[in-house]
Structure formats: structure tokens, C-alpha cells
Design a protein around this nucleic acid. Structure first.
Lengths: 228, 228
DNA sequence: CCTCATTTGTGCGTATGTATC
DNA sequence: AGATACATACGCACAAATGAG
């Protein structure tokens, strides 16, 4: 992907906020691609909040390291890279067990149906920024644990299980305080503010395929969005 | 804009979730534009969460009326339209007064500096969904009140004041309970759950230009995002 | 199982408009 | 005023995935 190369270019090229990138034509020459391709890549970065284009002037870097742009197309990986940090993920626990009441409700399952559970921590430069817990129906995704173990990504695992076309997440965002367990896993004091997002992913038919809860560390992550 | 026409097409054309849109080629013929133009419009809708494209298959409607997709490029107007409702906005109050402590801090102003304040309600089908309050430095934007009065949009007013290139918002999201005043303005019971977003917009140079607080009615708005 | 038409995804070349400097 | 640079659009071509026969 050219967007990734451009990201590396910005991060590794010593670009700081406010600096002007080479022109689209120059970038097209450098990467030996068409200007349209460069433009799509730049549009991707612009959407992620890394750059801002000004007609007649140029494309400028707008990355502010402490910000964590949040959007439909934004990937955690890309944003952490943009801030010059190294993203990683650590899986804490995987198990198959009967669904809890809210899980069964969210997934439209009968109470007691088996679900696969994955729990882990997202890190930036080995500093925990998020604690995720995700469950999928075991009946529909029998080989999910294996795929998850192998791919290390919930999204990738679901895609491989033939739900490449699942509907984008509907997420409820609320604020919570870290309990003792979360505090330990996220390396924050107990009572630290967390941003909790309760997520339901569903396929094209409207059938839920994944129920996830993620707690972000408020002090280490800022969610960004265009208001109104 | 073709995206708007397509939105109207989906809303007014009796499209429901899961239904397949005409092919890109057919849409290009219908609107008498190039396929690339149709693709951009579709990409816009895809980003707003209204449709999902599947290579080799087609583009499918994914709109769920009760959801409120939240993203960088997502416009409130478009989302409300997508759910088949009519968006509007009512300005409650405009005044110029000294900045409060958090406002001055967020905007990098000296305590007591004058700021322009705008307060209003966003509605969908005349039902309040959000209560916004926004302040901008009066020294930098002397004619903001006039522009705001005329244009009815904070974004448009700022754009006219030569900050077309302001950096995307960094927003902190927290949960709050509605107090008596908010309850009255939003037409919800006191103590109803609100999603509060504290926003700071800054220009390319990193200088804050707008500080905004918006309270969304949790029961009427759902924020959507791709997790991880 | 394989073939093949369909449809989206990606890329190239070109042209014109418009804001910036 | 003129050169530069991004914004928008058209037309063509091929790759990749899908789905029907």
C-alpha cells in the first residue's frame, strides 16, 4: 500500500507538524506511480488526520503525537505509527464458554449458547493503551480460536471466516473508572478514567457476529472527530 | 453533489438494509457522470456507514436508522438524512464575554480575554439530539457573530474567517447526566444519560481556534466507529 | 469442478478549474 | 500577471473477487 509507504515517509523522514510534503507530482515520480494513486493515498492520510491539503499551496503534516484520531477508516496501527510509536498487541486470554446475558442479548443468541472469547491489550511502545474483550458465536465460527491464534487479529480472523462483508460497528461510548483488574492489566492506577466502547458488529443480513468491549486509557488516548 | 443525490436515491428509493444498489456503471449512466465520480460518492457513503461494497458482488445498503455514524468526514446533516429524518439547528444564544478558565486554557488565551459564544440545539425531525456550545477568540475573529448569524454554521463561519485549513478536532468523550437546564433544552428527563464531547479545533500552526462542548442525547444518538 | 460474465478495485493518461504564492 | 499545485472529472484498461450456469 502506498499509504503505508507515505506514512513511513512522514514518520521516518523527519516531518513535523506544519511541514509541507513534496508535491503530488513529485511523490508520484518518487514512488513511480500515477498522481491519482498518490492522491488516494493522501486522501487516506488526510482522513486519518495526518495531513491537510490546501489547494494551491500543498499538503501539510498535521500530526499531533498525543492525539488519536478516531474514524471509520482509521486503523489503530496506522495512528500509532503516525505518532512515531510502535504498535503491538498482546493476547491475554482465549476461551470458549457460555455467553453472559448481555453477550447473548447483543448477539441474538439463546442464553447459555457457547461463545469464543478473546481478551488482550493494545500497546503503543509497549505502553498499554487499550484493553479489549471480544466474543463471537462458537456455533457460527467453530475455527475462530485457531484463526485468531494464528492471525492475531479479530478482524482478520472474522474475515477469514467468510464474513469479509460484515457491517461496520455500532459502538456505544461511555466513561468508566478502572477497577483493580483493569488497572493491573493497563498499568494505570485504580480509579483512572477509562473510555469504554461497547461494540456490536453484524453481517450484511443484520445478524450480529461479534460483541466487543474495549477500555481505552483516557490519559494515553484521545479520540478525535469532526463535530456537528 | 452526487453523494447527496445518491443519499436521496437510497432514502427515497425504498432501499432497505441489505439491498443491492445499481452497479457503478449503471449509476454513472443514470447521473451522466464518470464511474470514478460515482465511486467517490459511494466511498463517501461507505465512510458514513450507509453502504458496503463487496468486490465482484455489488454495493449494499447497510443503513440502520437508529445509528449515528461518527467519523472524520461524517456530517451530521448527511447522517440524519440517511436515517430518513430532517435535520435542523436552532441557535439559542450568542454573546461575547470573558473566557472561563477552561476555555482560556484550551484556547491558549490570557484569563479574561474576550470570546464569542454560540449555543444551540441540533434537531432531527424537530427532536433535539444534541446541545452544543462553542467559543472562539474574539480578538482573532471579530466578525464571527455576524458570520455565524448569517451562515448558521460554526464551521462555515470559521471557514469564512480564513481558517479553512484548521486542524481536525481533538475531542474528549465522557458520559454525563443531564442537569435541569440541559434536560429542558434537550427535552429529556433530568438525569438522562448524555454523551459529552469536549472539542478543541486548531489551525495548521497548532493554535487553537475553537473550543466546543456538545451534549448528545444518549437515547437518541449512537456513535459508530470501527474498533481496534 | 470449472468456466465465464459481472462487478468492484486499482491504476494510467489527460484535461480543465481554481486557489495560492 | 504568471507559475505552481491541488481539485475535479473523463475515458480506458486490467486485476481480483463473486456468483451463476
Amino acid at each position: 500500500m502506498i499509504a503505508d509507504a507515505l506514512t513511513a515517509e512522514i514518520v521516518g523522514g523527519g516531518y513535523g507538524p506544519g511541514m509541507k510534503l513534496p508535491t503530488e507530482a513529485q511523490l508520484a515520480l518518487r514512488f513511480a506511480v500515477n498522481r491519482h494513486t498518490v492522491r488516494r493515498a493522501l486522501a487516506s492520510l488526510s482522513e486519518a488526520g495526518m495531513v491537510t491539503a490546501r489547494q494551491g499551496a500543498g499538503v501539510f503534516v498535521t500530526t499531533v503525537p498525543t492525539e488519536y484520531p478516531l474514524g471509520r477508516r482509521v486503523r489503530f496501527h496506522q495512528n500509532v505509527l503516525a505518532s512515531g510509536r510502535t504498535p503491538s498487541r498482546r493476547i491475554l486470554r482465549m476461551e470458549t464458554r457460555p455467553a453472559s446475558v448481555p453477550e447473548a442479548e447483543a448477539l441474538g443468541l439463546d442464553p447459555g449458547s457457547l461463545v469464543h472469547l478473546v481478551e488482550g491489550v493494545s500497546l503503543a511502545d509497549d505502553l498499554p493503551v487499550g484493553l479489549f474483550r471480544s466474543v463471537v458465536p462458537a456455533a457460527r465460527f467453530p475455527s475462530f480460536p485457531e484463526a485468531m491464534q494464528r492471525l492475531g487479529s479479530i478482524t482478520a480472523a472474522l474475515v477469514e471466516q467468510s464474513v469479509a462483508d460484515y457491517t461496520r460497528a455500532s459502538t456505544r461510548l461511555t466513561a468508566k473508572l478502572a477497577d483493580a483488574v483493569q488497572a493491573g492489566q493497563l498499568q494505570v492506577p485504580q480509579g483512572a478514567p477509562l473510555l469504554r466502547s461497547i461494540t456490536v458488529n453484524q453481517d450484511v443480513g443484520g445478524i450480529p457476529v461479534e460483541y466487543g468491549v474495549t477500555h481505552f486509557v483516557g490519559d494515553r488516548v484521545t479520540l478525535t472527530v469532526i463535530p456537528e
